[in-house]
Write a protein that binds this DNA or RNA. Sequence first.
RNA 1: GGCGGCAUAGCCAAGUGGCUAAGGCAGCGGUCUGCAAAACCGUUAUUCAUGAGUUCGAAUCUCAUUGCCGCCUCCA
Length: 490
Amino acid sequence: MPQKLFNTKTRKKEILQPVKESAIGMYVCGITAYDVCHVGHARAAVVFDVVFRHLKARGYNVTYVKNFTDIDDKIIDRANKEGVDIYRITERYIKLHDEDMAALNVLTPTVTPRATAHMSDMIDLIAILEGKGIAYAVDGDVFFAVDNYPAYGGLSGRHLDEMMAGARVDVNDKKRNPLDFVLWKKSKEGEPFWESPWGKGRPGWHIECSAMSRKYLGETFDIHGGGEDLVFPHHENEIAQSQAATGKPLANYWMHNGFVKINAEKMSKSLGNISPIRDIIQHYHPEVLRLFILQSHYRSPVDYSDTAMKETRTALIRCYSALQLMKETKDKLGSHSGDSLLSDQSGYVNKLEELKDQFNEALDDDFNTAQALGYVFETARLINNINAVEKKMEPVAKKIILDTATGVFSHFGNVLGIFQHDPEVFFLTDRVIEAGKRGLDVSRIELMITERQKARADKDWSRADDIRRDLASQGVILKDSADHTTWLIE
RNA sequence: GGCGGCAUAGCCAAGUGGCUAAGGCAGCGGUCUGCAAAACCGUUAUUCAUGAGUUCGAAUCUCAUUGCCGCCUCCA
């Protein structure tokens, strides 16, 4: 099955045909480094991380470029407020970004370029545009003349005349057309600046992506991604700049992820409902956030809420429970070797392989992680079913089946970037997080469990049940097995 | 004003012309268990906002109606 993806430019699902066979160049707009990353950044990062992982798993040699915008008005504002230079700000927030991404198990892109390290590339590009008469310089500023680029508006489906009608006209006497956008901005007194043919200044917002994608991926590459808010004006302007300069398409496929709402409201600073990643992972295992993001299709809006995260946590626990059970069963089976498989049991192996194929095909179809997760949960059920039903199966046959299941689940986890922990470690982390949220004392809980174990050994059921009821009232759920008791916070 | 999107069970969410409408959460019945929890088995939408149309056949296509939402200004 060929890879399909929804192309914002054509508003259709298309078959991915790379510029270079079996290689993919992908550029995703990263963050402006002036504040900590929030759940919306997490979504974009996780979505394109899965695109990156799946394409690699399908055998493509992917070059993934994700930039840092490290020169911008907001950065300058922040630096002024703190009385430091902009590098103090950008270094801080890039570092925090990297920590958040690592916590979310987002793979580091192939290249993570910064705007300020590519000044000459940007200046070269602007000079080309000026040379072609598409850009014009006025008193130290350089603007892109939208009237000189007839295809303007092609990505976002807008027409110049319509935009003119509804435009909030930017008060700027220097512009020939109010929709012209700045390529190079003359620096004001005290602002950071770089030398250029137009004097001291700094780049406009859009030009860095045009310059850096050109440098690392060439004039035409395969996939350009970002949040849906970037369609206009950012990506529209990138296309205008790059294509006016090169005469070639910038990217063949444009992918945009949907927004994250918070409790059904738009996330915004004025509502004060921005959820930073580092706050969320204090309250939930990072894989819960990842799973939450991947449970919806990447183009749909999602509604982040505590209720939704609780439900997702339960779903993740379900998967880890299956993994743990599988691991325990395998340990008990020991090291039986051999490859004999009875025909009635090979059905399980075939079913597992089929689920793996279905999972891959779901991702081939516009990275449908929600559908792919349906197969993940079916696999978890199948594993549990085998463990529950096949008590008398030949150990050799069972081991082959469970080894297959382990491999299949490992594939799911590697592509989605979840199930990356030993189940014991996952449950331990989860207990610590949940106990912390409720102010429960883990060591005290474990003392009570030890005491209850003594009571159970003495068959003092009423004492054992009293302790369990006491713990249950604090949300602690016990799970007894023959020789020990594990626990979980509901 | 312009452009675009969405509406599927109690909740979340796949499915965009034809097998029994995935999956998760919640609920109910059963098995297992000292009792539980987890797990397993069964069950929970004759129907996909409403109305009309196209078609042998529609949740899926067309039109209309209603209701939400996003972008057009910095934003993942």
